[in-house]
Design a protein around this nucleic acid. Structure first.
Length: 571
RNA sequence: CGGGACGUGGCGCAGCCUGGUAAGCGUGCCUGCCUUGGGAGCAGGAGGUCGGCGGUUCAAAUCCGCCCGUCCCGACCA
């Protein structure tokens, strides 16, 4: 590969539009260019890395017994209406009409299409199990695309769907995918963590996410410092608190005037109590009506847990008008006493012998409230977000909160789509059964960005060897020096003949420019050919990450690089 | 959708408050000379309807309005 003949428009300066490291470097290294918000062109080197990721994903998926297919990007509305998602999926679903005024969408995911295919073609238990995957362009009209390839609207995803005669077989496949995913991310050279995840609106009983650890990650995860427990913060379980031995307060709740004092901090300061003695009453609206959620003042509500407990699809915090209507007071003074809507309390609230709550009266709070004694029946559950102060729910040791970028997610889907789309098979006894399903996604283009978030320094990208657009860059110091030019040309040919991709920087540029670009591009190995070292029959080999430099005989360079690389790729 | 910021040659920016003599800097690009181990130097040159539309004015990159685009924060803590 010749630098001078390849479109690699590197940038000296940071583009104004890019903030995140990976976004900046993807643009500066000339790997991508933006066409519109959240929509990017992949340039030759960016595409090469993308293909590297795809190849690893393919190999491991095939190895795990999955078969590749390619499904359409444009899908008819009818299928989505059949599963009900035409209604449920919000504005993220890009909808449009074809020339016949038929409703269509650009696929954000392919459960409908694949299930439709399988229901048409699979009718017998003899055809199961089946694991079909594709590497496809998806479109999700994100509220706010950001960070370049990390949250684009158009992106490339590997999605696999498996079909089974029974749940046990689906679980075996889930396990196989779990292992395949570990292999994939390991081979990509990423530092990642597998976490328990909420299965979300896709449904299903359990699921895992694969998180690339990076400080810039959008996701928070709780990870045990001692055992293997790790979970998305949305999912992480809070330990049940010890029940207090303290007796409830002697008298009934006391109303105290707290004019203009509404936040937990203000109430704590005003009443001279600890935040953990105060209880926040959050009023939610759901499709099934309003509900109140009680959370300790020093805790945060976990809306995913609330949503799951209530079985609600729509869950939004009530606005000031609804709060007044339901509580009789403005926001800041809501409390559980006398509320005529369903009450839900976090288990930490239920463990409090006495608490301070709003009085449902402007400018007033109640002290000495006891949940069991004073309040209407309350459903108690784990409804809060865990913190680093909480112990691990499995082993009791310390938890730590990390940031990650979600690059993979595996779900056990169950019968959700096979039932709504009537995908059935006949079992050995001739009975019609719904097909059991699983689904498994990998953000292929996101991996490219995640690898950069994890691998970079002040000079540019540091690719894992497996993902680099090319493993070697070859820099001739001078093009006018015939021996240098010839030696570089020969090395280039030798390396390519040995099956290595090599980027020969044949541009008529000064060495400094080439060094800077080589660093920016993040190519793992740099071979420099120059008159000085050539006199000694040597070339210089430098490692991008460690900056370690060795001089090797010209004749040995090709073999040497190959050895170094295979060490890096295969340990 | 709410808040904030931005939009001036390919890229990064200044000029705008205080309208005219402001189309300017750096970099990149082209030509030539020179140079060649960490983004060299000199000389010459190409390239911009100042995001769009409308308004105010004798006069608009500059003031006003609308629109479009882009980025950042938020869209949950009572």
């Amino acid at each position: 590969m010749f630098f001078s003949r390849t479109l690699i428009p590197t940038l000296k300066e940071n583009p104004a539009e890019a903030e995140a490291v990976s976004h900046r470097l993807l643009l500066r290294a000339g790997l991508i260019r933006k066409l519109a918000s959240g929509i990017y062109n992949y340039l030759p080197l960016g595409l090469r890395t993308l293909r590297k990721v795809e190849a690893i994903v393919r190999e491991e998926m095939n190895r795990a017994g999955a078969q590749e297919v390619l499904l359409p990007a444009v899908q008819p509305a009818e299928l989505w209406q059949e599963t009900g998602r035409w209604q449920i999926y919000g504005k993220e679903l890009l909808r449009f009409k074809d020339r016949h005024q038929r409703d269509c969408c650009f696929g954000p995911t392919h459960e409908e299409v694949i299930t439709d295919l399988v229901r048409r073609e699979v009718h017998s238990y003899r055809q199961l199990p089946l694991n079909l995957y594709q590497i496809q362009v998806k479109f999700r009209d994100e509220i706010r695309p950001r960070f370049g390839l990390i949250r684009g609207r158009e992106f490339i995803m590997k999605d696999a769907y498996s079909f089974h005669a029974d749940e046990a077989d689906a679980e075996a496949c889930y396990q196989a995918m779990y292992e395949a995913y570990n292999a994939i991310f390991r081979r990509c050279g990423l530092t990642f963590k597998v976490v328990e995840a909420d299965s979300g609106p896709i449904g299903g009983s359990f699921s895992h996410e694969f998180m690339v650890l990076a400080d810039t990650g959008e996701d928070l995860l709780a990870s045990c410092t001692a055992c293997a427990y790790a979970a998305n913060l949305e999912k992480a379980e809070a330990p049940a608190p010890a029940v207090s031995g303290d007796a409830p307060p002697p008298g009934p709740p006391q109303e105290v005037a707290t004019p203009g004092v509404r936040s937990v901090e203000e109430v704590a300061a005003f009443l001279q109590v600890q935040p953990q003695e105060i209880v926040k009453t959050l009023i939610y609206e759901t499709e099934a009506g309003p509900a109140a959620v009680l959370i300790r003042g020093d805790h945060e509500v976990n809306e995913v847990k609330v949503r799951n407990l209530l079985g609600a699809t729509d869950l939004i915090l009530a606005g000031p008008e609804q709060v007044r209507e339901l509580t009789g007071a403005q926001v800041g003074f809501a409390g559980p006493l006398g509320l005529a809507i369903p009450l839900y309390a976090d288990q930490a609230v239920a463990a409090l012998p006495r608490m301070v709550t709003g009085a449902n009266r402007d400018g007033h709070h109640l002290t000495g409230v006891n949940l069991a004694r004073d309040v209407n029946p309350v459903r108690v559950a784990d409804l809060r977000v865990v913190t680093e102060r909480d112990p691990c729910p499995r082993c009791g040791r310390a938890l730590t909160i990390l940031r990650g970028i979600e690059v993979g997610h595996i779900f056990k889907l169950g019968l959700k789509y096979s039932q709504s789309l009537k995908a059935t098979y006949l079992d050995a006894e001739g009975r019609e059964q719904f097909i059991f399903m699983g689904c498994y996604g990998i953000g292929v283009s996101r991996i490219v960005a995640a690898a950069i978030e994890q691998g970079h320094d002040a000079d540019g990208i540091i690719w894992p060897a497996a993902l680099a657009p090319a493993p070697v860059v070859l820099i001739p110091i001078s093009l006018t020096d015939a021996p240098t030019r010839e030696a570089a040309g020969k090395l280039h040919d030798d390396l390519e003949a040995a099956g290595l991709e090599v980027l020969l920087d044949d541009r008529d540029e000064r060495p400094g420019v080439k060094f800077k670009d080589a660093d920016l591009l993040g190519i793992p190995w740099r071979l420099v050919v120059g008159p000085k070292t050539l006199e000694k029959g040597q070339v210089e080999l430098r490692h991008r990450r460690t900056r370690e430099t060795v001089f090797v005989p010209v004749g040995d360079a090709s073999r040497f690089v190959r050895e170094k690389l295979s060490q890096e790729l295969y340990g």
